[in-house]
Amino acid sequence: MATMNEKDYYAILGVPKDASAKDIQKAFQQKARKLHPDINKAPDAEERFKEVSEAYAVLSDDAKRARYDAMRSGSPFAGAPSQPGSSAGSYGGGFGGFPFGGFPFDAGFSQSRRAASAYNPEEGANVVVEVDLTAAQAKEGAKRAATYRRYESCSHCHGSGSVSTDHAKTCPTCGGTGSIDVDMASLFGMGVLKMVCPECAGSGRVVADPCPQCGGSGRTAVTSEAVIEFPAGTHDGDVVRIKGMGHAGTNGAAGGDLVGRARVSSERLEGRAANGFYTVGVMLPFLLLSAFTGIFSLFALICLVPLVMGIGMIASDDALHRPSLWWKRGLSQLLNGAVNGLFFALIMVWFTSCTNGLFLSPYRMM
């Protein structure tokens, strides 16, 4: 979500900056009628309707409009860069490192944007980096260098988001409620619509004097480097955690970790082998039910063809000679296929039984 001072509410409503309250209300009514989700079925209609409603909520209130105009005109913090808010959990960060090649600068930074001056301490998220290892490196252990993007604590405000005070103040736009009201009484009979406050992002508090370097979030985007050490005996999917090297938290909250996840190609079940195990799993329920019930025996013979093909895909990929594949990844794929196959096999048994009963019922009555 773009910040309050990044949006041009006048352009959104299509009115000049000196528009009267009546002109603003008229423009809002016209756009809202066209964009209301019950009328406009376009995929982006709901989002545009919310944006128009947000613009009207700010510009229709004299105090909020004056503050908005001040933020966009000459305020030293107007237009300060906003940054994604963090949420607990892991998500993929860009990686490259000296042995890995380039890295995507936007990876791990796709979370919804928070208002720049919002005071909302949240723990920083983890950054997950996938590291390719050979079978020998996984067996003997290896150190790998990784370069990745993350948020670190702002050096100018020491992570607090505020230059001179750590105390947040009540959001002047919403009065601390975290939401703003849009009077929709003149449209559709909807009454009052509540929306998340665009200045505090729903927290009800804002930084008293936002840091010009981080915009009040307490953190800035940087490129970091770290050495991830995988111990001997590492297997595909194993992780190594480096405390505090993930994303810094907002407004002084604790930071996340850097998580290195091993990718050992010799231990991965992919491509033909994975499809082969899954195909075999799908066919097994049909063959077993046919053997026990005697139903659709002809279809069971047909199932032998994909069954043999699945076994052939496994054998051609030499999967059985890879460590841990047969009873770990192979069995997992086999079970997934068997569950889906059993579902369809039971449906066929039920359908066949019903069909036979339908044809036999006239004879039973005689």
Score class of each variant (00 low, 15 high):
1 M>F: 10
8 D>K: 03
9 Y>H: 12
11 A>K: 07
12 I>D: 07
13 L>C: 10
13 L>Y: 04
16 P>G: 09
16 P>E: 08
16 P>Q: 02
19 A>H: 02
20 S>M: 08
26 K>I: 14
31 K>C: 09
34 K>C: 01
40 N>H: 01
40 N>K: 01
41 K>Q: 13
42 A>W: 05
43 P>I: 08
44 D>E: 10
46 E>S: 11
50 K>L: 12
55 A>F: 05
56 Y>M: 07
57 A>C: 07
58 V>I: 15
61 D>A: 14
62 D>P: 14
64 K>N: 15
65 R>I: 10
68 Y>C: 11
76 P>L: 13
83 Q>N: 07
83 Q>V: 13
86 S>W: 00
86 S>C: 09
92 G>N: 11
98 F>W: 08
99 P>E: 03
100 F>Q: 14
103 F>V: 07
106 D>H: 05
111 Q>G: 14
114 R>Y: 12
114 R>N: 12
116 A>F: 06
117 S>F: 09
120 N>C: 10
125 A>P: 00
126 N>M: 03
127 V>N: 12
127 V>Y: 01
128 V>A: 06
129 V>Q: 14
134 T>Q: 03
134 T>Y: 02
137 Q>F: 03
138 A>H: 01
142 A>D: 08
146 A>T: 14
149 R>A: 14
155 S>T: 13
164 S>E: 09
165 T>M: 03
166 D>Q: 13
172 P>D: 07
173 T>I: 15
174 C>F: 02
178 G>F: 01
180 I>C: 06
180 I>F: 02
183 D>P: 11
183 D>F: 05
187 L>N: 06
201 A>P: 08
213 Q>I: 13
217 S>K: 07
222 V>H: 12
223 T>Y: 06
231 P>D: 04
233 G>E: 03
238 D>T: 05
247 H>L: 07
247 H>W: 02
261 R>C: 07
261 R>Y: 05
263 R>I: 10
263 R>E: 02
264 V>L: 04
264 V>Q: 00
264 V>P: 02
265 S>A: 15
268 R>F: 04
269 L>C: 09
270 E>I: 14
271 G>H: 05
272 R>Y: 07
274 A>I: 05
274 A>R: 06
276 G>M: 06
283 M>Y: 03
291 A>M: 08
296 F>W: 13
296 F>T: 12
298 L>V: 14
302 I>A: 15
305 V>A: 13
309 M>T: 10
317 D>H: 02
318 D>I: 04
318 D>V: 05
318 D>F: 08
324 S>Y: 12
327 W>H: 10
331 L>D: 03
333 Q>E: 15
349 V>C: 12
350 W>Y: 12
353 S>A: 15
359 F>L: 12
360 L>F: 08
360 L>H: 12
363 Y>N: 06
364 R>F: 15
365 M>L: 12
365 M>C: 03
